[in-house]
Design a protein around this nucleic acid. Structure first.
Lengths: 345, 345
DNA sequence: TTGAAAGCGCTAACAT
DNA sequence: ATGTTAGCGCTTTCAA
């Protein structure tokens, strides 16, 4: 425990060369023929023998970069992020970066994590987080951090954003329900956030309704907490909505949809017979609900990969203007809506 | 972007004091009256004005510690870890540490994450990970990293371990089923790992069986992949087992149990009428399955908190011998087993 | 009460 | 082909 980790100076001593040479050998860009094969071998052997690993703090201090990316999530209890994180990590690794996941609950300030301070990392990806629009993000940027937001609107044109086509997803989901003959279609959603015109799930929902000549009814939009329990509660409120009882709902995400499905069961309503449900995300759980959940599949891996790549480009090239990527989604039909009566083109 | 972050020298210049003084003021242990209130104010104001944050790399290099803990998880797609992570993070924060979550898939080597190298962090918590027993852990320890393992056996007496009483959980779950009159009780489990005698879920399962005078039948133990799909597949294999068809199963975790429940439905078996199921973990999803899942609740928050606290103690006090904590579990009765015929004492 | 100086381990510009 | 030297930004003796 008290044992000091070996330094490059230790390696140099053992190999009988200067410390510079050690550094040169170990970081040697291929092609630069600075080092004789002989010393090269001596150094490498000495390093191996000592189990030498370059000190991260020293290198970061010297190079003014850490090769570390922080990935901020609101919570890790939604498996949605699992594929995103894995893909981001893999893409980052290809460029020599490590990814640290930092769950920061909605409402909490980013600065709770000291990892984001004092250039402890080179860039951050903020994923599906309320605070994306927070001025804190610009503060971090001002300190030299590269920033990309994932699954949210970019608060600043200089900040890249990588997201899926939420509106298209909402449209596909709702059109599917319309195509099955539903006219009273509810929408269960998480707390609404300011989003660019026409970019949200709900915008797609409204567009599909409009296209079908169904008037939008605000009573059928239920805002709830983003959890399974929130979905269950929302279903009850939806059933109580004024006017004719809805026969279907497009739900913000699969986690909420699991709660909706469960509550429909509790209320004695049959799915899809009495009520149809479409979720959003394409989580594994959707294949195991009763009935299996029709949902909008989101390209999570591509999202994570692209986020990492975009961020790393921003770190290394210092682009002044952000990129905006929007990835396509697709409808994933399972059992929670019944069969199509009028298949869409 | 090109903007350099302000350093303590910048603050010193602005405040008209030496850089040493800035450091003294900003880190001043309360009580040490080295600094006049006047300079104090000047420095603090200057720092505020510049938005100064101490450089993490420089400080780490100088102090030979990073105040950073890595939390290694096999995957973040099991919400089990969500509470663990949050609690660990909160506990760490109380001691001024940040926690970075690093998902490293089972089978992958720890060194894939450069965060674990070169003293980039002060300690690591390895949670529910296959590779816990890997010699890599001892390598990291040899380099001065503090290590704690969570939810697994400690591979070395010097490494602390924090876990729940798996055997007790297995016992409670199985005894519950026995108490309801079941005699043919299956066990669905993830790939078996070497574990200390009498410490696994299956040990508890066997003990409950034995206590009830039910002979252990290896055909009723099905090993499967740790996923919902794995649970579904396992159920099919369980139904095909030799001898009389089992009427119940104790399942390794809730994620697998969701798959089991789903497959029972697919096979037309009613739960709990035809088949009873007990899970393990106490996840939120269990309240929303059809029917709601009886499970063994694990104290996830306490686990995470204790892991962080234990690790930080090891970091700061360099204890040579690890602690072993084992936390109690409790049975959480919901609908997947029916009512008790013979309530257990 | 304050400042000057050393040095953490590393990379890179500049000798040799 | 290799070594010397100068910092990166910080904390911490040691002097004043």
């Amino acid at each position: 425990m008290t044992k000091r980790a070996p330094t490059s100076a230790d390696v140099a001593r053992l190999a009988g060369v200067s410390q510079t040479t050690v550094s040169q050998v170990l970081n040697g860009k291929a092609g630069v023929t600075r080092i004789s094969p002989d010393t090269r071998d001596k150094v490498i052997e000495a390093a191996r023998q000592l189990g030498y690993t370059p000190n991260h703090a020293a290198r970061s201090l010297r190079e003014r970069r850490t090769k570390l990316i922080a990935l901020i999530l609101p919570t890790i209890d939604n498996p949605y992020f699992s594929d995103v994180v894995n893909a981001a990590q893999e893409a980052a690794r290809e460029s020599g970066y490590a990814v640290a996941v930092i769950p920061i609950r909605a409402g909490e300030e980013f600065r709770v994590s000291s990892l984001l301070q004092g250039a402890a990392c080179d860039g951050i990806i903020v994923a599906g987080h309320d605070n994306c629009s927070s001025p804190e993000l610009n503060l971090l940027r001002a300190r030299g951090l590269a920033v990309a937001v994932l699954q949210e609107e970019s608060p600043d044109p200089a900040i890249s954003s990588i997201s899926v086509d939420l509106a298209e997803g909402g449209y596909l989901a709702t059109r599917h329900l319309v195509g099955l003959g539903h006219r009273r279609i509810g929408h269960v959603t998480e707390r609404l956030r300011p989003a660019a015109e026409g970019r949200s799930r709900m915008d797609g929902y409204r567009r599909a309704l409009e296209e079908a000549g169904i008037p939008f009814d605000g009573d059928l939009v239920v805002v709830t907490e983003n959890s399974m329990g929130g979905g269950a509660a929302a279903l009850d409120r939806l059933l109580l909505a004024g006017g004719e009882r809805p026969t279907a709902a497009f739900v913000y995400n699969d986690q909420l949809a699991v709660g909706v499905l469960s509550q429909l069961r509790a209320r004695g309503l049959r799915v899809p017979g009495d009520f149809a449900v479409v979720g959003f995300d394409g989580l594994a759980i959707g294949a195991f609900t009763a009935p299996p959940l029709t949902t909008v599949d989101s390209p999570r891996g591509a999202l994570g990969r692209l986020a990492a790549q975009t961020l790393i480009r921003a770190i290394e090239e210092g682009a002044a203007v952000g990129e905006a990527h929007r990835l396509p989604v697709r409808l994933m039909v399972r059992g929670s809506c019944g069969a199509l009566e009028h298949p869409a083109p």
